[in-house]
């Protein structure tokens, strides 16, 4: 199986081309949020280096969220449109799970975290089982304080992973004490090669048109509107004219 994997969920950008279990080419950057400009050139180069044409691909795997809304849309629009236009399979993998999969210690609890600003985070808890991250607490948008308290109920070491962990390391350490294990810096960046391997065995999306990022949050405007209009529904929101 020839596969292209893309992760632009946050500031890091990672692209990989795989043939079955083999990573043919991969690029990861952590230099900025200009993914709209940089993603496709990096994809093109990875494909060329791998000696592949777009039509040679069997499957596109994308980190589907949570993360930066704009970052997610760039990756998902690219992956979704590529899969659609070439009639290929599309797989979405949790951006947090993809990061957790950098840890390979069997049985280990891993807590990947992305900053969601104002002392909130996108976070999930995973256990590495049979070399894959298995969700223990599902991905959520949560206050860091609440998240620290949830993690503290597990009486075993937890690997905290992600470049944003540093920002909240103090409250997390206060809750977890020496059960908190900080991941090595090289593991903090998502690796599309790892994402691709996870995506290889996952089930492709059945309805490609309906595939959207997993934002994990309603927009503020929709949230406020629903609070004021619990009974109302304006749907369909989008109409063909």
């Amino acid at each position: 199986m020839k596969l292209l994997a893309i992760d632009t969920s946050n500031r890091p950008l990672s692209v990989a081309v795989l043939a079955d279990q083999q990573i043919l080419a991969t690029t990861t950057t952590n230099v900025g949020r200009n993914h709209s400009s940089t993603l496709l050139p990096i994809v093109e180069r990875a494909m060329t280096q791998s000696g592949l044409e777009p039509t040679d691909l069997d499957r596109i795997v994308v980190a589907a969220g949570p993360g930066s809304y704009t970052g997610l849309r760039i990756g998902v629009t690219t992956a979704k449109t590529l899969a659609f236009t070439l009639n290929k399979e599309l797989v979405g993998i949790s951006s947090l799970a993809a990061l957790a999969a950098n840890v390979v210690t069997e049985g280990q609890l891993v807590a990947p975290l992305f900053d969601a600003r104002r002392d909130n985070a996108f976070a999930g808890l995973y256990r590495i089982q049979n070399q894959r991250p298995v969700a223990v607490i599902e991905d959520q948008h949560v206050s860091v304080a609440k998240w620290a308290a949830k993690l503290a109920t597990y009486n075993e070491p937890i690997v905290l992973i992600g470049t944003d962990v540093q920002k909240y390391v103090e409250p997390l350490r206060a809750a977890l004490g020496d059960r908190l294990i900080r991941a090595r810096p090289q593991l903090d960046l998502p690796q599309a090669g790892v994402l691709g391997l996870l995506g290889q065995t996952a089930t492709p999306v059945a309805n490609l048109h309906a595939f959207v990022p997993n934002y994990l949050r309603l927009t503020q405007a929709e949230h406020d509107w629903q609070a004021k209009h619990p009974e109302k529904d304006h749907a369909p929101y989008v109409e063909k004219i």
């Binding site: 659609f84 405007a221 509107w225 929101y237």
Partner: peptide
């Protein structure tokens, strides 16, 4: 082919950019 989001933004009295972006990705393919 034109997919309009007017009915969605009517809720807010104007176009909300994040809502608009989310609808686009639902519609594009």
């Amino acid at each position: 082919v034109i997919a309009t989001q007017i009915n969605s933004h009517k809720r807010f009295g104007g176009v909300v950019p994040e809502v608009a972006s989310r609808h686009h990705i639902e519609q594009i393919t």
